[in-house]
Every structure is written in C-alpha cells, then in structure tokens.
C-alpha cells in the first residue's frame, strides 16, 4: 500500500462498498447495449423475415417482397473461398510456430501475425483491390475471398499454435520412437490430438469474417443478380445490409433488419458451436 489509510475504518468500508457497487453498475451498462441490440433485432428482423427472404432475389425499388437468396449464397461462397485458403495456411503456420517455438523467426512470425490481426479491415480491402482487382480491372468473388482469407490467417495461426502447445510433448516423442517420420508425427498424432481445439479456432475465425463488410466493398463489390462464378462480383449479406440500410426506402430498411438478424444468427450459431460442441478433451493418463 502506497499510503497509510487515514480515514476511519467505517468510512473505508463504505468507500469499498461504493466502488464494488460501481463495478456492478459498469457491468450492467456494458451488457445493456447488447440486450437492446439483440431485442430490437429480433423484434424488427423477425417481423420482416419470411420464407421469401431465403429463396427470392432482391426486387427493384417500389416493388414489395423480395429476398436475399443471392447474398446468402454469396456469403457462403466467400466463406468457402476464404476457408480453403485461410485454414491450410493458418494451420500450417501454426504447426510451424509450435514446432519451432524458441527460434527468432518464430517470434517474428508470431508478432507479425498479431500485427496483421490488428490491421483495419478496410486497409486489407484496399490492399486486395490494388493487388487483385486493379490488375484485372474487374471485381470478383475470388478477390473478396482472398481478402477475407488474409484476415483469417493470423487468427487461425495463433489458435492452432496454442492448441498444439497443449498436446503433451511425450506423445510426439512416443510417435518418433515408433519410427514415425516427423511429418507423419505432426499430422497423424499431434494435429489429430489438437483437432477439437483447432476446429474451435477455425469456427471462431469463420464467425469473425462472416460478418465483415469493409474488405468486400471493393473486392466482391456486391451484385443484384444470382451469380456463382468466382470471377464475377458477388453479393454478400453484410454488403446487402449496408446498401439497404443507407437507402431511403422503408421497404429496404425492413429487409436490412431481416438480413441483420440472419447474419447475426449465423455468426452466433457458429460461435456457439465453437464454444460448446468441440471442447478439447485432454484428460487422464498424461498431463
């Protein structure tokens, strides 16, 4: 303690109680916006949600109805592209970091991956535009997917590394002593054992990129039509929500709410699955 308390013990107790109370108030204030947002989203979103939302295409201004079938497909495609690049690279880099723990290069990669993770998504967006869109002169789902992959890689790398570190070193030794080559040890023993945790990490990364808008604005760009081509611009739920939200039409506003509800449900379901369904199980026998 830096200075001896001068107040009476009763005064100090009261002060302590007040400060404890303030932390409770802070907790209530911090959770309040979440409850407000969720409540309103469910109320407004559910009332504008219909079967059409999932199956129909967007209608032009002035016509009622319409849905976001193309945007839902687009989000799924973008996630698929991003995952097919981001997961292998991230998991591979995570393996490398876990296996070369103490080296300077590993330290550098770990650090830079944290830096990459903290970069604004809009900067990743303009980078992807400059690197992938500008040279070919057209927007594409592929460019959007790659931009999202760039955001995924650092997340997957760090969780993979952490999960692999939880695997006891004795398992690796046991496999090597049986005559497993290094790569087979890493893939069939170490990676398999860490898999539940890595899946969790991958799901968290997918949940995070599923809601991203900024990296897609100048890459996937958005598309009012049905498209399954990776070389064409493609719509995505977040882009569509953004477009509708800043439009002046009430009809579109309610679609934006419905879209937000669906997007949030998607993100939350993925996060919840990641949190509860795939808890890693290391127990018994070794520590």
């Amino acid at each position: 303690m830096s200075r001896p308390p001068r107040r009476s013990i009763r005064g100090r107790r009261a002060r302590s109680a007040v400060m404890v109370g303030l932390t409770v108030v802070a907790s209530i204030l911090a959770t309040l916006p979440l409850l407000l947002i969720l409540g309103l989203l469910i109320q407004k979103g559910a009332s504008s949600l219909s079967w059409d939302f999932f199956t129909a295409m967007p209608k032009p201004v002035g016509e009622t109805g319409g849905g976001m079938a193309n945007a839902i497909l687009g989000t799924v495609m973008l996630i698929a592209i991003a995952s097919s690049i981001g997961l292998p690279v991230g998991i591979g880099a995570g393996l490398y970091l876990a296996e070369h723990r103490g080296t300077k290069f590993a330290f550098l990669v770990r650090f830079l991956s944290d830096v990459l993770n903290g970069l604004p998504s809009i900067v990743v967006g303009i980078f992807a535009w400059q690197f992938l869109v500008r040279p070919v002169k057209h927007f594409s789902a592929l460019a959007g997917g790659i931009a999202l992959a760039a955001m995924m890689i650092p997340l997957v790398t760090r969780t993979t590394e952490e999960m692999i570190r939880l695997v006891p070193a004795s398992l690796r030794e046991a496999a090597l002593a049986l005559g497993y080559p290094r790569w087979r040890t890493s893939l069939t023993i170490v990676l398999r054992t860490a898999l539940p945790g890595i899946v969790t990490g991958a799901l968290v990364a997918v949940a995070r990129i599923a809601g991203e808008t900024a990296p897609l604005l100048f890459t996937a760009f958005g598309n009012q039509f049905w498209s399954t081509s990776v070389n064409e611009p493609i719509s995505a739920l977040p882009i569509q929500i953004f477009t509708y939200a800043i439009s002046p039409y009430d009809e579109w506003h309610s679609l934006a709410w419905a879209g937000a509800l669906v997007l949030l449900a998607l993100v939350l379901v993925i996060s919840l699955v990641a949190r509860f369904a795939t808890r890693s199980r290391f127990r018994g026998g070794h520590d």
Binding site: S170, L178, F282, G285, H286
Partner: peptide
Amino acid sequence: RRRIGMVFQRPTPFPT
C-alpha cells in the same frame, strides 16, 4: 527407431 522399441516414464497412449 522402427527396429528398436521404446517405452517412456509416463504412459503415452495416443488419445485419439
């Protein structure tokens, strides 16, 4: 290593 077996201090069954 394939021709020589080894057993360690702690049991190391592969958990998966």
